[in-house]
Design a protein around this nucleic acid. Structure first.
Lengths: 235, 235, 235, 235
DNA sequence: AATGAATGAGAATTCATTCAT
DNA sequence: CATGAATGAATTCTCATTCAT
């Protein structure tokens, strides 16, 4: 089960078209792991959901654990991969921050399952595997931190602990995905998002920051967010 | 496995002294479940950790799942049970809020394992069981909400969404317990706590609120927190 | 253990060749259940006797109980399936009756184990399962009743309660299988059979019936019975 | 479990009043074993039903199996013990035979549970134990055989195989107890009994036998049977 | 590449039996 | 005598993994 601390495809990167197979299996695993959790999902479940045979899975993955590893990797990658382009080159850092926040929240809204999965199952990885995953997690946070630091630096926000604030932004989005059941009936996504800005952005704005806030040119609206994310998801 | 939605000991409330046994088993389960998770802990593990025989566990619990149920119940109760007395009758609501926040964070610091467990394993309960647990969860949030509403009402804080804000307070504490590994090396608990106040309380104070902030009479200091919690834990 | 009152293979009717497996397991179960009884036979015993692995059994049967169900079904079917053809179209009803009796007794002689099993273990079935079995039991009795009624109707026998008489015929055969140990040393099968006719048929014959009795053309002799049964058993 | 082939009380015949205890336990076992069977009845079940503690049972019985042994012994004894006195000294052998038959059938009617138990569970005894039980079984049959032989000898009946005929008489009664569910709705006990006589006695009477049949002086009527049996059962 | 039958180690659960009180 | 807490061997059942086809 743990011959070599994994983090690499079973054999040597299998040819090419086989990637489709892996994707097919991973997709099934995403659905099942996030719905039922890792341990309550059997290899047979995955095979059935993916419309392949049980044996096939072992052609592409070393282990059940290996399936989890790649599944998490896939989920996190998907979440990460999308932010950069449309966030970085915003007109000014406050816009960048707000867009990042909106984007990340929209992400959470669109990919509840995946987020749930990332949340639930990271602990079910073997310790060695966890390392390979941790890295990803912080890549995304950099977007937030950068925007945040820029805001502070350019006097739009007053100084705050960027580490922790960054974490708050991300946590807020996660909350929507994870505790969704607790909020769903009281808040629509828009409301939740708006409240988030009121709590985690506005209070920290300087006067000039507050001025900029009105300037919504380039602010991602919900429609754009949703389409962008969906497009990106097709990939 | 689930004839009658559980929530009661196997037979009829076993006398009294047997509570010690239950406690002994639950204590072992807390340790193991929070370290390894529910599914990776076997009944035999628990028996060994609790220094009893496998069979004994089934004298006090219907199921492995039942053990989880009571274990979570116990953990949450422990967390819940302690707040009230020293929080409710604070000199003024801002103090109450700050104390609640401090207390809850200190709790997270002192009972990382338990929080971790509560977080991880609630999803492993059967749906019916989950209900019995949810109740607990919100009892605690009421302390926050009350203090928060009082602050707003008495003009110490400006209006915010109390639902969500309450959630933020609790989440912040959880973060310390759960993502501890991410912050541990950069922040001491005191720092984390101070940052929390800076981010989740101070920005929302009115002028009169800010004035009160200086007034630290009755504010729980770290030492007090730690001893109180520890004492309470002995129970 | 009993989600859906069973009566069907675990998944969806497994293809075809797998029937051989089922048969193999059932055959082992017949031997063991009838020798040691249901509860004293473990799944492992069955696996060993059938030369398969423990796990395999659960691929073909839902439960240990399910094994019993199919085993009983199989046994009863085997007993049932054979009678019709050679009994129905006898020259005259008295011959039919005598042949049925002979056949059924021979059956009991040849399949002592199975009869024993059917007798012992029907009560170990779950109530729902029992229903599926009862049906079989009476199908066979019809052969007797029909012949009996025909005899009476055509004046070969004087009127008797056909319900109860039918039962007597079958019981007599069972007795040979079940209490065999009590008679074995005193009587050979032929004797037992002859006595049966003397007690359960002859006394009820009318004068014309007695006349027919001598007419043994078409009466199944022991050799024929034994070969017929054995051949049928191969199936 | 089988140190010494049992057949004797655990220690040496325990004093005296302890017999009440044994009886109490055996009575509970009769009810449970006949309802659920030996293997599906736990020692705990018996203890609960008998209102004693689990441990107590092991003070009076060596084994769970030992409980079965004594329970069967008790049941059979009860069945046996009652016949003699009122059967032996009948006016003439035909009356004796009929009375025996009636008595035995009434027995089966009154003690269905016990008969069922005797039937079900004899096979669950250990081989050594079975010996101690077999004896009983035939003691009772002697009553039948004697009456039967006397009938034949005195020309009331024509010769039949007494072994087998005896068996038929007993089997007929058993049938009522065991297959009761199959007859209950169609026949009342009186009917069943009457049919039995018609099938198993009348056809074998000689002319003089038939004459005697009308003479019903001394024939046990149903009322007498029921009271006699009930009284005997109190014992 | 793909299948799915077969395996067997491992987990949960039960229950007869013991024993300290 | 009586209790009932405690034990652990035995059993059922699950499921990741292998492998012949």
């Amino acid at each position: 089960m743990t011959e070599e601390a994994n983090g690499a495809p079973p054999e040597k990167e299998p040819p090419r078209m086989s990637e489709k197979r892996r994707a097919q299996i991973v997709a099934a695993a995403v659905r099942l792991f996030s719905r039922k959790g890792y341990f309550q999902t059997t290899i047979e479940d995955i095979a059935r959901e993916a419309n392949v045979s049980k044996g096939l899975i072992y052609l592409y993955f070393k282990d059940k654990n290996d399936v989890l590893f790649y599944t998490l990797r896939f989920v996190l990658e998907r979440i990460e991969r999308q932010a950069p382009q449309l966030l970085e080159r915003s007109a000014h850092p406050l816009l960048a921050l707000r867009n990042a926040f909106r984007f990340y929240c929209a992400m959470a809204d669109n990919h509840k399952l995946e987020m749930l999965l990332a949340y639930r199952s990271t602990m079910d990885l073997l310790p060695e595997q966890r390392l390979g995953i941790k890295v990803e997690e912080s890549r995304n946070s950099r977007v937030f931190r950068n925007a945040l630091e820029a805001c502070i630096h350019s006097g739009l926000m007053r100084p705050v602990n960027t580490d922790i604030m960054t974490y708050q932004y991300m946590m807020y989005a996660h909350t929507w995905a994870i505790k969704n059941w607790a909020f769903r009936d009281q808040y629509r996504f828009e409301d939740f998002l708006a409240e988030g800005e009121k709590i985690l952005i506005e209070p920290f704005l300087t006067e000039s920051g507050k001025a900029k806030l009105a300037d919504e040119v380039g602010l991602l609206d919900l429609e754009t967010l949703r389409t962008t994310i969906r497009d990106a998801a097709e990939d």
